[in-house]
């Protein structure tokens, strides 16, 4: 396989949405607009967080970028390409129903390798490496429902790692977790992004999560979703939530985001 197929083209932009509109039919048959001309870019090898109130179309943005939904108008591309053509390059992670409950953890992680036709011996050693990296050693033979929520999401991250996808679309994956576990997984995600040069589009309700994770923040207005503001988060890493500088910057950004959300109300 040519090298350029394995490594993403080194352009500045991974995700590009231009004037994306999307409407859904209600039960009564009327069209309800979910997105109204959404335009933003997400940089390559970094984390772009989308925040916005309920109903702002955050999940719809992810589904369009993943190629699972088609935009009614406008274009959504990944690295300049139609997402539907990027088979196995896109990883998608949601808050619930991420793992297949009838498969053991190791089978879940190995699934992308099985789909690709990797020989079982090679797959086993790769899965063992991923489990060790994610702190899942000893959990491979368990079923997902035998794991805590945090461990389940670690296993789901393991499946994304095994898929060797470059573009991770994450829909509030840590929302249901307790604070300590959420912080651990946020830290793990940042490490993985740096190690693997991943480009992440991350949807969250939490301003704190957006500030902690994001290199770029995209704020959506209340539905129908429009981009209210998009800005780069230039806080130095590693970000220490307890430092004075972190607190000042976080407060400044929080005020900025909340003022944007306040305008909608």
């Amino acid at each position: 396989m040519p090298l350029e197929d394995l490594i993403p083209q080194l352009t500045d932009t991974a995700y590009s949405l231009k004037d994306v509109e999307k409407a859904f039919l209600s039960r009564g048959g009327t069209a309800v607009k979910a997105l109204d001309g959404v335009t933003f870019e997400g940089p390559e090898g970094m984390i772009t967080c989308i925040v916005g109130p309920t109903g702002s179309g955050k999940t719809t943005v992810l589904r369009i970028v993943s190629g699972l939904e088609r935009a009614d108008r406008g274009t959504a591309t990944i690295n300049g390409k139609d997402p539907a053509t990027l088979v196995r390059k896109i990883g998608y992670l949601t808050q619930r129903h991420t793992l297949f409950p009838w498969m053991r953890v190791c089978e879940n992680i190995a699934l992308p390798l099985e789909v690709k036709g990797v020989p079982p011996e090679d797959a086993r050693s790769q899965v063992a490496g991923i489990c060790a990296r994610l702190g899942l050693a000893g959990s491979g033979d368990l079923y997902p429902h035998e794991l805590s929520g945090g461990m389940q999401q670690r296993a789901a991250l393991g499946r994304l790692l095994a898929s060797e996808s470059w573009y991770w679309l994450m829909d509030e994956p840590f929302t249901a977790l307790d604070e300590r576990t959420r912080h651990q997984l946020q830290h793990l995600l940042i490490d993985l992004v740096r190690e693997r040069k991943l480009s992440v589009l991350f949807v969250t309700h939490s301003i704190d999560e957006a500030v902690y994770l994001a290199d770029r923040v995209v704020v959506l207005s209340a539905g129908p979703g429009r981009v209210a503001e998009s800005f780069d988060n230039l806080l130095a890493r590693p970000r220490n939530r307890l430092s004075q500088e972190y607190g000042q910057v976080m407060e400044r950004i929080r005020t900025r985001i909340e003022s944007v959300l306040g305008e909608e109300e």
């Binding site: 129903h97 009838w102 498969m103 699934l111 992308p112 099985e114 789909v115």
Partner: peptide, 29 residues
């Protein structure tokens, strides 16, 4: 069968036979 399971398999590039064998059949069993 949950749509999200089918979508996960599609994003992994699974064939129809793989989706049937690894998702639809065990979910329906």
């Amino acid at each position: 069968v949950r749509t999200s399971y089918l979508e996960t398999m599609r994003l992994l590039g699974a064939t129809d036979v793989q989706i049937l064998r690894r998702v639809v059949l065990p979910h329906s069993l």
